[in-house]
Design a protein around this nucleic acid. Structure first.
Lengths: 107, 107
DNA sequence: GAAACATTTAAGCGATTCCTTAAGTATAGT
DNA sequence: ACTATACTTAAGGAATCGCTTAAATGTTTC
């Protein structure tokens, strides 16, 4: 598969509030790094570095457009988070039996 | 206080693989810290400190039983993670309308 | 080519993280 | 009381994190 080498951990990538905010902004529309940075009170290199982390986790992709680099959301790795958290969903929906079985097998 | 106290952020709390593993183990059944620690190749204080982070995030609760302290999962804070990740679910289920159709144009 | 623009890389700094060993607190059993 | 057990807190160190400013890279326009 021509592909996605998700080098870093998606759970760590989404741990930082600033990075979640960046994902939220990119979820609305793709945009160049400079425009994305306007929403944040930090330097441009800081934003670039956060985007590097998100890219390593596979959560954003980018393409070059002139002298801009346009970033867009790539939500696929979030599936792993969704799957993980959904194994615990049974606890707050009251179906605990299924969860116990699932975790028992996957140990 | 030393060691690590994470400041109650559930996203940071679940970022560490060791802590996710501890949650998985506590999802099967409650158990004292010492028994929980058997599954991990780290010192008892390290496990205790991880549990402290999970407790600060509200993900585990404990009760005293003799000289043991029995920990149990408290999954409620994971709702926040579930809610957050579900806002992105539309992207990978192909229903992009709600969050923007800009992605269709990209690449 | 030179200058302006958009972004990345480098270097560094203080704070935090994750672990360690040592010491402290608390409970139980003899 | 003494000892063993269960766990926590303290103290500290190596590695990483999140930011900064400065320098470098690449691109468009003049």
């Amino acid at each position: 598969m021509p592909g996605f080498s998700e080098g870093q951990d998606v759970f760590s990538a989404i741990a930082a509030p600033a990075r979640r905010a960046m994902l939220a902004r990119l979820a609305q529309r793709e945009m160049p790094m400079g425009e994305l940075a306007e929403a944040f009170e930090m330097s441009l290199p800081a934003v670039s570095q956060h985007l590097g982390v998100l890219k390593d986790a596979g959560l954003v992709a980018s393409r070059k457009a002139g002298r801009h680099r346009i970033y867009r959301l790539n939500p696929e790795p979030l599936k792993a988070v969704s799957d993980w958290v959904n194994t615990y969903e049974a606890f707050w929906t009251g179906k605990m039996a299924a969860l116990g079985e699932y975790l028992e097998k996957s140990e």
